[in-house]
Design a protein around this nucleic acid. Sequence first.
DNA 1: CATTTATATACGTTGATGCATATATATGTT
DNA 2: AACATATATATGCATCAACGTATATAAATG
Lengths: 104, 104
Amino acid sequence: MQSTLFTIAEPNRFNIIELLKKKPRSVNELVKELNIGQPQVSRHLRILSEAGLVRVNRKAQQRIYSLEPKPFQELDAWFDSFSQLWEERLDQFESYLSNLERKE
Amino acid sequence: MQSTLFTIAEPNRFNIIELLKKKPRSVNELVKELNIGQPQVSRHLRILSEAGLVRVNRKAQQRIYSLEPKPFQELDAWFDSFSQLWEERLDQFESYLSNLERKE
DNA sequence: CATTTATATACGTTGATGCATATATATGTT
DNA sequence: AACATATATATGCATCAACGTATATAAATG
């Protein structure tokens, strides 16, 4: 799951993911919307594919790429586990407030 | 927010974050729990600090590092935006099911 | 079957990043 | 003030990953 994060963090791959989140696209569509060459797009798609983040569907000569939900679910869950962070801080703030009250 | 992701994706920084999530720690505590040298830990903490992911509190010679909640909240929200992915798939599955029923 | 369109791969170059070693700074202790 | 502890920074080196160019494969079309 940590390697998933690494894969997503690369700026171009991040942009590809943002585009694919809206709707599946062919390689050429991605090339037009990004500012990198076709070989780079193909290469990043390959990396995303090997990481299990996208799936491919053939349509004539085109390859239509779309996002694979599972890894994103996992990361979503991981980031949820940080919610304790701000909840604890809120608790601390509340006990600070009740201390104030006691003093008054 | 994308740069935040990039900062987190580095394996050692990821581990540091996992440790700090449990509780704040001094540099030396982190050094003992990770398999890298003190200068590297300090360097990664600096990067995390500049990215606004951690805060420092001095305690004698020690520097106690802890996580800053905001950026994690942001990423949590970003990954939530992917939930549409699997919900849509679920919708498709459901309409597929109701199609089956109609045919029967 | 030759050509066009769509995509993938190979290769060399370059820039970024992490590490180890050495050193600097800051605080505490005697 | 001298020394010890805790942390930060500087530097040189090695590795890795992304890019561009060129080329290969695959499918459609005339």
